[in-house]
Every structure is written in C-alpha cells, then in structure tokens.
Simulated assay, not measured.
Amino acid sequence: MMVQTGVLPERHEDLERVPAWLEHHLADKPVEHANLFRPFLHWHLLRRARSRAGKRAFPTTVGRDLRRRILVALDLLAWIDIQDTTLEDLQQDDLDRWLDEENTQRRNRIRYFLSWTADRGLSRRLTVLPIPCQEPADILDDDERWQLLQRCLTDETLPIEARAAGALILIFALQAQRIRHLTADQLTEKGDDTY
C-alpha cells in the first residue's frame, strides 16, 4: 500500500531475492569464486537492472536472466578449475572449446561476465560470438495473415486482449514481450481514432 501511494519507492521483489539466491549457490564453492561473484552481482548486474527498472517498464524475467548469467559463469569457473588453469590465463581457444562442449545457446550469456572481468583486468578480452538469429520455422503467407487479421478484428468470441495483441503482431510485427508491457497511458485518442 505504501508503494502504491508513493510513500516508498517501488521494490522489485524478484531482483531483491537474487543476492540470497547467490549466497545459497556459493555455499559449496571456493572462496575465490564467491569473492568474484559478489561484486559482479551487486555492482554490475543488480546496479544495471535497478537503474533500468527506474527508467522504463520492468521486465518480469530479469531476475531469471540474472540467475542464468551467474549460473553460466559458475559453470565456466568450475570448468576452468577442472582444466587446472585460471581465469587470468584463459585463452580464446579454451573458451571456444568450453562453448562448443554444450550444444545450447545458454553458454553465450558468458559474454556479460567475461566483459566485466576483462574491464577489471581479471581476464583477457575474449570474444563470444552473438547467438545467430534463427529464421522462423513457419512463415505465414499474405492470405493467411489477412485471414488471421480479419478474425482478430471481427471475431467477438475471442477475448479482446488476444484480438488486440494478435492485430498488433500481424500489422506491425511487434513482439509479444513488447505488447505485454504496453499500458493504457500509451494510447492516444484523436477524434474517433485511437493510436
């Protein structure tokens, strides 16, 4: 209630749970890993996330994204330990080998951690290629798109939210994530039209 009335600033509970989650995950990790991850989380990931939350609509997945970045970095450090090397001595070919071991795109999130460590002189500047954009598996032809748009505009058996979102996707190719964050104050009425 105090947040709603403006007495207290908005608190993003998902973000505020991340430090305790990190401490739980660091319990059985080497001390040097813990000493590296605490500042990475508090002074890099959380600071940037809180700053962004103050400027624009707050994505509900940000806590999950921060956890994934940390878990991937913990995986890399565990792998480095097994290889009997250090983060400071990690070479590009070592990183490429680690990235290729797992056939998923999850490990590409390591770029955030490695950029942070390189900026602080804790590692070399290493390159993590961006995840290649994947083409849609099934593309609608124009007739199918127009039929779906017609249904979104006229089929009153569908919920209005689904019809509006479907129309925005079909007309403007907006991503569902962006549509989800639209608010009523972003609509403008001019005469009989709404924009």
Rank of each mutant, 00 (worst) to 15 (best):
L46Y: 07
M2P: 07
Q105M: 10
D93M: 03
A165C: 12
F113Q: 00
L149G: 07
H181T: 13
T86L: 03
A184E: 12
L168M: 11
R48K: 11
R52W: 15
L187E: 10
E23D: 15
L122M: 12
Q134G: 11
T104P: 03
R68A: 03
L140F: 12
L114Y: 11
D119E: 11
L149P: 01
D119R: 07
P39F: 06
R180T: 06
L148A: 08
D141L: 11
A162G: 09
P19L: 01
I171W: 13
L76C: 02
T194A: 09
L90P: 00
A27D: 06
T154E: 13
Q150M: 08
L26E: 10
T117E: 00
R111L: 08
M1V: 08
R107V: 02
T5I: 01
G166Y: 06
A173P: 05
Q175S: 07
L99P: 09
L66E: 00
R38Y: 10
G166T: 13
T154A: 06
R125V: 09
A167T: 05
R48G: 07
L187I: 14
G63M: 05
I179H: 07
W43K: 08
I171S: 08
Q105N: 02
C133Q: 15
H12W: 10
D185L: 10
A57Q: 04
L15E: 09
L22Q: 03
R109K: 02
P159Q: 09
W21A: 01
A162H: 03
F40H: 02
R48E: 11
H25F: 00
C152T: 08
W98Y: 10
I160A: 09
R17K: 14
